[in-house]
Simulated assay, not measured.
Amino acid sequence: MIGQRHHTTTEWSMAVSATLHCLTGCAIGEVLGMAIGTAAGLSDSVTIALAVVLAFGFGYALTVRRVVRTGLSWRQAIRIAFVADTLSIAAMELVDNVVLVAVPGAMDAGLTSGTFWLSLAFALAVAFVVTVPVNRWLIARGRGHAVVPHAGH
């Protein structure tokens, strides 16, 4: 029983860590995409698409950078990033953008509006909370960030 509890606690700890990593890449891409789309006056759907593409790009890039530091090749690192991050980023982006669209006025608010920035922060926070169990599920099955090698380990 104690061993199982430790295993479960470790999985949740790993899941939170993996989700924070995912949130970093997603937030960079999401904020850039939303800011660029809003500043350029792009439609909501184009702005969201841009934000999602950038979120995936930054999310994968952060993992690739970390994996290459362990000594693996770029090709291996890219493969690991796709395996480790795709479901996590997809879950985070889905939730983030659904929440953002659901907040009244968020998509119409300008870059100087508190509504824009608070809605974006709120959407990312909700996405984080929803994505932690997704990462825990992946890790428990030996997938997601469980497959990412770490330097020094």
Rank of each mutant, 00 (worst) to 15 (best):
G3N: 15
T9D: 15
W12E: 03
S13I: 11
S13C: 04
M14P: 00
A15R: 01
V16Q: 02
L23N: 09
L23D: 10
T24F: 08
G25A: 02
C26I: 09
I28E: 00
G29C: 06
G29S: 05
L32W: 05
L32F: 14
M34T: 02
A35G: 08
A35W: 00
I36C: 01
I36H: 02
T38Y: 00
A39W: 00
G41R: 05
V46Q: 11
T47L: 02
I48Q: 05
V52I: 15
V53M: 09
L54K: 05
A55F: 05
F56C: 03
G57H: 02
Y60R: 04
V64R: 04
R65I: 14
R65S: 13
R66S: 14
V68I: 15
T70I: 08
T70D: 09
L72M: 13
L72H: 13
W74L: 15
R75L: 15
R79A: 15
I80N: 06
A81Y: 03
F82M: 10
D85M: 11
L87R: 05
A90D: 09
A90Y: 08
A91E: 01
E93T: 12
E93W: 01
L94I: 15
V95C: 06
D96F: 07
N97L: 08
V99M: 09
V101Y: 12
V101F: 12
P104V: 04
G105I: 06
A106T: 10
A109I: 07
A109L: 11
A109Y: 09
G110T: 03
G110R: 00
G110Q: 02
G114H: 12
G114A: 14
G114T: 11
F116C: 07
L120E: 12
F122Y: 11
F122L: 15
A123K: 08
V126C: 08
A127H: 06
A127P: 03
T131Y: 04
N135A: 01
I139V: 13
G144P: 06
A146D: 12
V148M: 09
H150N: 10
A151I: 11
G152Y: 07
H153Q: 13
